[in-house]
Design a protein around this nucleic acid. Structure first.
Lengths: 318, 318
DNA sequence: GAACCGCTTGAGCATTTGCTTAGATAGCGG
DNA sequence: CCGCTATCTAAGCAAATGCTCAAGCGGTTC
């Protein structure tokens, strides 16, 4: 095992070196092969390994006018604290490409601070993609706290275990929420939230300096449905009674106000308070999410947004 | 003119977009051409423009073991505050490639701070290369101060006007030194340094939160010779009497102590104080510079170093 | 209006890259 | 020792990329 990880490390080392020679020093793969004393094919493999292992980070350092303008317009319209709009790929307007980098950059900005921060984080595909783009860092001064559990009621875990992955990458203290996403009753929730460790985590979440959440739509393809937390029929009926979206599993309506009584009674996630004075950053793209993002902004469930050109335009034209 | 710069801006905008689609979204140039509605050749030109305009920033996000080890060893051996070692290109061990990016990253780290800082900066090829790698930023909170003039005694300017370029890029207040590099006599220096604006600049330099300097060797190919400040013969005789290197035109010996009496009497640069408690970062690579870097570290004229693998190894084996 | 200049565009071609296949080599357990 | 596996090199090919050169185009000068 030790030998194996040594091998892996030295292989990644070589990959990093090859990637450096290729992308930074501008060598061709033939030259790299010669310099590292391997065949061209191996050099090619090393470079492509460096890319696939995300050792190579590319950023475009130019304020693309249209994105800037969209950021300005969104910030003004919704009075945002933080706003980032990345270019869309015209063929894949819902792709997470770019969003992930921008979200990671915003996370990194906070993580780089020497001042200790509490960073609260939800779950979902978008956040997962962002976290995957984080570089490895060493941030023992910060605390990362989960806003919700990732347990099904049977104890199994969902796919998007964002907080563990993030803490792995940045080596920060972290506080996963040891709860299922939904409990069976309001009473059970009160009981669980009263437990000492859970209480501490909720308190940390309340004090967070910055919060990152995904934004879910409420229809047949809702993440809650895909994860099996609510059935397709439940989702339809929720939608019928006015549920437009979901953030950390709290459902809300067209006006961005939480809707009491429905499944919100059983949500075990940290409370979702509107109009906080620290950044609550929603990360979401896609036509399907426009309505739910718009409502969340309207109700100030989120006060910051990271999205792409196409989504930004739809939000502004709504 | 307005139209022209509009055109240029929108062209760079397109270039940024093309670069984004290529490097971040992973499109081929054919796809980009189709998406932007131009020919493949134009797409290729846009991508290559984005690269040549330095819109595309690549970094390798992996601690290459050997470089890490060299950093550790250098830090311990010379008690450094900041140390960065980048990989060498085996065929071009004195190349500024990589150094420039690492130096720019260190500069950026300071510039990103919200807390106002005073950044002092020398001149030279290395610093120039670093500054060229800086992204455009907006940092009105900082002050950038020059440690030395870039005037020949006839009033003409030398090639490496680093501070103006840097201030251009990051939009910070800046204080170029309005002096020649060498004056004619010690008395003239005292007179010039007594002038109110010069005095202010020297005071700023003294208070700098971080200082970046190049390190020059003292031989026939010394930068001072290439710039025509000293003749080839003077350089030889300086070397004969023990001058090993030069920082902001102050010459020093093998022990890293300034050598009084020689041309140091006529150097108009800000005083070079050993053993400061803020980072004084030397940026230099190449076999020719090993002795002068080593002496500067020994005499603590610099307390931080950015260099490459090859140079780091030579420094440690000396 | 013709000639000219500067700049951009499009086409063709050489190089580079990504990928596949085939054979060589080394480690390893039976 | 033999197969088995995994990994590397070599070779080659198709796609992608970078470069050059000639043609086109808009504006300017004579």
């Amino acid at each position: 095992m030790a030998v194996k990880s040594d091998n892996e490390a030295s292989r990644l080392d070589e990959a990093a070196r090859a990637g450096w020679l290729y992308y930074v020093a501008g060598n061709t793969q033939d030259e790299i092969a010669r310099k590292l004393g391997v065949s061209r094919q191996s050099a090619q493999r090393l470079v492509s390994l460096a890319v696939s292992e995300r050792l190579i980070k590319v950023r475009v350092d130019h304020p693309i006018a249209k994105c800037m303008e969209l950021e300005r317009a969104l910030t003004e319209r919704f009075n945002l604290l933080v706003c980032a709009v990345v270019p869309s790929d015209p063929d894949a307007p819902s792709s997470m490409v770019g969003i992930a980098q921008a979200g990671a950059a915003e996370m990194e900005r906070h993580l780089k601070s020497n001042h200790p921060k509490i960073i609260a984080i939800g779950t979902g595909r978008a956040l997962r993609a962002c976290v995957e783009q984080l570089p490895t860092m060493d941030c023992p001064q910060h605390r990362i706290v989960s806003l919700l559990g990732n347990m099904m009621s049977d104890g199994s875990a969902t796919a998007y275990n964002v907080i563990i992955r993030m803490a792995d990458r940045v080596n920060a203290r972290h506080f996963p929420m040891p709860l299922p996403v939904f409990v069976n009753s309001h009473e059970e929730k009160v009981l669980l939230h009263g437990q000492e460790p859970v209480h501490n985590i909720l308190e940390l979440a309340r004090q967070a300096d910055v919060t990152f959440v995904g934004v879910g739509q409420m229809n047949e393809n809702a993440q809650l449905v895909l994860d099996g937390f609510v059935t397709r029929e439940e989702a339809k009926s929720l939608h019928r009674v006015g549920v437009i979206g979901e953030i950390t599993s709290w459902v809300y309506g067209k006006d961005g106000k939480l809707i009491d009584g429905l499944i919100n009674d059983r949500v075990a996630s940290a409370p979702l308070l509107p109009d906080l004075d620290h950044p609550v950053i929603g990360i979401a793209v896609g036509e399907a999410k426009v309505d739910s993002i718009w409502a969340a902004l309207r109700g100030r469930l989120i006060n910051s947004l990271i999205t792409n050109e196409a989504t930004a335009e739809m939000l502004l034209n709504k």
